[in-house]
Every structure is written in structure tokens, then in C-alpha cells.
Design a protein around this nucleic acid. Structure first.
Lengths: 125, 125
DNA sequence: CAAGAAGGTCACATATATGTAACCTGTTCA
DNA sequence: TGAACAGGTTACATATATGTGACCTTCTTG
């Protein structure tokens, strides 16, 4: 170890921002639709709870990856869009995905099968 | 939503593999040293516990990002190296890091300051 | 007038990740 | 002989993330 200290906080920050059981899926749907309404998103994503969906949306919004737009009136009408930051992230996410498909394809296939059933973070493996 | 289902499990797998409070740092040090011994790593990384360091090393090894090499004899001598998979990942991680530095630089700076103090996953924000 | 609509909150329960400290292994060295 | 060494395990405690269900709003419709 010369003087190469660990100064790569950006990586930690990025991973923190992305960490959340449903975030990749949420980002995916939001970035592939011009205006995604809350309820539609909830309908599309199989097993998430309203509360958790809301939590993760709030985090994504706070981190600037998505934009929330609220039209006044009743019933409420809220929709989400991908932001510029979020858009800038997507090639990087594709690269990550590509890496996984090439280098850990067994795990990817396994994941596809268990999908919806499994728990997110490990340690129980 | 046409028929564009979410089939991007690779991203989930990659993020799962990378998720762990100390993994980016561990990966960094291992990939920047030809042979990193357990104890040296432990000495270098400020506040991690032996147990947690071991856990994360095991996960990284199980996921194939690093290689563990054990020389027989006493006292034990174990060293870690980056694997080919791990090596292949590093440009992607750099891209992530770059994204963070460009798009969420405030958070990165904040992270640098709190470093070591802060907790990893949020929700308490 | 009761129920359903969309988006959201709250209090609480469970699951998973991380941390703390004690203990174990055979050499070597004082 | 007993302390230090490197790497590791174990039982337990705490922190954080996710899940469940009840409740709230105000307008519209049956």
C-alpha cells in the first residue's frame, strides 16, 4: 500500500442510492414510460406494498433520479418521470446488467426463476 | 405498458452482489494490490469487525469476484486477489463512480466528511 | 347516503445486515 | 509455560429495511 488511499466515495454514494429491493424495477418502469402514475406503477409491480413503494419513490425523488408531478384536484393525480440524472445513469446500469449476464449468468437465471419469491439481501446463503 | 416486462434480473443480481457496507472498499484494496493478506486488509480498513470482514470476503469469494489463497503451515497465511470477473467489473464501477461525481457531487462530498461515521443504508434521512 | 376512486400516513411486526466480545487453533519466542 | 501470532468461529445484541393493515381525504357515482 503506497499512498493510494480509498477515496472512491462516489461509488458508495451511487450504490447507496441504488440500494433498495425494488428500485431497479421502479426505475425501469418509470424510465420506459413518459408519465407513470402511482397507481399504475403499483398495479404493475407485483408484490410491493403501497408504503414501501412510496418510500422508495421518495428516496429516488430525493436523490434526484425521478421527478414527481402532482396535479391538484380530486381524486389526486400524481405521476412520475425519469429525470436527467436518472437518464444519465441508464447506460451505466446497462453495463452492470451486461456484466452480470456475461459473468454470473447462472445467478441471473436462478434469480429469474425465484423472482418475486426471494429475499433481497443475502447472508442467509 | 406494452409488452415490455421487466426482465432485467442481471441488474438486480449485480447490485445484490455489490451490496454490503464495506464491499466497495474491500474490492478496491484487493484489486489494487497483488496479494492482500487478511490481517493487512483488516489493519487498513478502519472500523470493520473481523467477523464482518470475513463475511463480506466470503460473499465476494462465493460470487467469484475475488480469489482466496491459503498456504498451509502455522501461523496461517491467507491472501486474496482480484479475479477475472472482479477485474471485468472495475470499469463499470468506475462509470458508476463517475456518474456520482458528476450528478450527485454534493452527496459525495458529504459522504467523504462523514466517512466512517455514517451508516450505510438509509431510510433514516 | 354509502361505496369507490387516488395518493398518502401511521403504528406495528418481521427479516436481514452489521457490530461486539469471547474463544479456538498450533507454532514460535521470551 | 504462557503470551503472541494469523485466521477463523460462535452466541448474542443492535440497527436498518421491508411488510401488513387500518385509516384519512374529497369528489363522483349508484
Amino acid at each position: 500500500m503506497k499512498n493510494n488511499e480509498y477515496k472512491h466515495c462516489g461509488l458508495n454514494v451511487a450504490l447507496t442510492i441504488l440500494s433498495g429491493k425494488w428500485k431497479p424495477m421502479i426505475l425501469y418502469y418509470i424510465s420506459h414510460t413518459p408519465e407513470m402514475r402511482f397507481t399504475e406503477l403499483w398495479r404493475i409491480i407485483p408484490k410491493i406494498t403501497k408504503k414501501v413503494l412510496l418510500d422508495q419513490l421518495k428516496q429516488l425523488e430525493a436523490d434526484g433520479l425521478i421527478l414527481r408531478q402532482e396535479k391538484s384536484g380530486f381524486p389526486p393525480e400524481v405521476s412520475y418521470q425519469i429525470s436527467e440524472k436518472g437518464h444519465a445513469l441508464s447506460p451505466v446500469l446497462s453495463a452492470l446488467e451486461e456484466w452480470a449476464n456475461v459473468h454470473v449468468s447462472e445467478k441471473v437465471e436462478q434469480f429469474e426463476q425465484e423472482s418475486g419469491t426471494r429475499r433481497w439481501r443475502r447472508n442467509g446463503r
